[in-house]
């Protein structure tokens, strides 16, 4: 038992050892969400509803069809993607930072048989769950709004896959967010990822105008470094039946490419975020 001293160096990168304890952390956040459902429910609904009305119903009247669909049909799937990005990213930046830094919730939990790795993994799973909740709510709003449009807003039968996409897409955004949380010196630091990553993605990922109208270089950049692009491709194909054609790649190529891209990025940032959090919190 003497060699354990050398073995356990807290800074070393490692694969986390996780158990069912992860769900106890998830449950804690789910319990809080249930208690505060009133304040959680409305804001996450309001933003996509405003976009749908302002851009879809308002601006959309002045815009011709895009790839054979009306403007509101074009942006509706993007709103689902944006809502899951916001839900997961906000929870694992501001939400996790408050729990870690101000409320000392992580400190309290790691005094019980739950490890820090499991705390962070539980936070990430909860962040993914927020993505599922938000996008499902927006899906309902879109389905209802579709009753007032010329063409229903949900045309493809694959929309039932949205929660699955939201879970993995949400996990990816949560893990990226958690990396920022792990290095954030204070809560204002999150202005950087919000303005430099989330806001550009909000507009440059084939959300409110077709990415195919931008030069090929921009399309390549969006597909390489903007995670939301792949999520939008997935939600758009599940709600309308096809994606845009980007870099001469059609739906049949973009969908598997997107799934693989999301899984790889989610896995990398999942491991990275847990290790960065250990580096931050275990001295």
């Amino acid at each position: 038992m003497t060699e354990v001293n050398i073995r356990k160096s807290p800074a070393k990168f490692s694969i986390p050892k996780l158990s069912s304890n992860v769900w106890k952390v998830w449950q804690r956040n789910a319990d809080v969400f249930r208690k505060t459902i009133g304040v959680n429910f409305l804001p996450s609904m309001l933003e996509p509803v405003l976009y749908l009305f302002a851009f879809g119903f308002g601006l959309g009247g002045f815009i011709p069809e895009i790839n054979g669909v009306s403007y509101i049909n074009f942006i509706a799937p993007a709103l689902v993607a944006i809502s899951l990005m916001h839900g997961s990213f906000l929870d694992c930046t501001y939400g996790s930072f408050v729990r870690m830094y101000y409320q000392k919730t992580f400190d309290a939990i790691v005094a019980t048989p739950i490890s820090l790795e499991e705390v962070v993994a539980g936070e990430l799973l909860w962040g993914a769950t927020r993505g599922v909740i938000n996008s499902s709510l927006v899906l309902v709003v879109i389905a209802i709004s579709g009753l007032f449009t010329a063409q229903p807003l949900i045309t493809a039968p694959y929309f039932l896959l949205i929660p699955l996409i939201a879970f993995f897409g949400g996990l990816m955004f949560s893990a990226i967010a958690m990396c920022f949380t792990a290095i954030a010196p204070n809560i204002d630091f999150f202005n950087y990822p919000m303005f430099l990553l989330i806001t550009p993605m909000l507009f440059l990922s084939g959300t409110f105008f077709p990415l195919s109208s931008l030069p090929q270089t921009a399309q390549a950049i969006a597909l390489t470094v903007l995670p939301l692009t792949h999520i939008v491709n997935l939600t758009r194909s599940t709600l309308t039946g096809s994606t845009e054609t980007l870099l001469s790649l059609n739906t049949q190529t973009l969908i598997p490419l997107g799934i693989i891209w999301i899984i790889i990025i989610a896995a990398i940032f999942f491991l990275l975020s847990i290790n960065l959090m250990k580096k931050r919190l275990i001295h």
Binding site: K24, D31, Q103, T105, D107, P113
Partner: peptide
């Protein structure tokens, strides 16, 4: 950590919960 009980110096009670919920949620851990 299963056999140790800890009362830390700083207040790290869970402000998102009531008094009894603090205990029940902690016991669940």
């Amino acid at each position: 950590k299963c056999v140790v009980g800890v009362a830390p110096q700083e207040d790290n009670l869970d402000v998102d919960f009531s008094v009894v919920e603090n205990l029940v949620v902690y016991a669940r851990y």
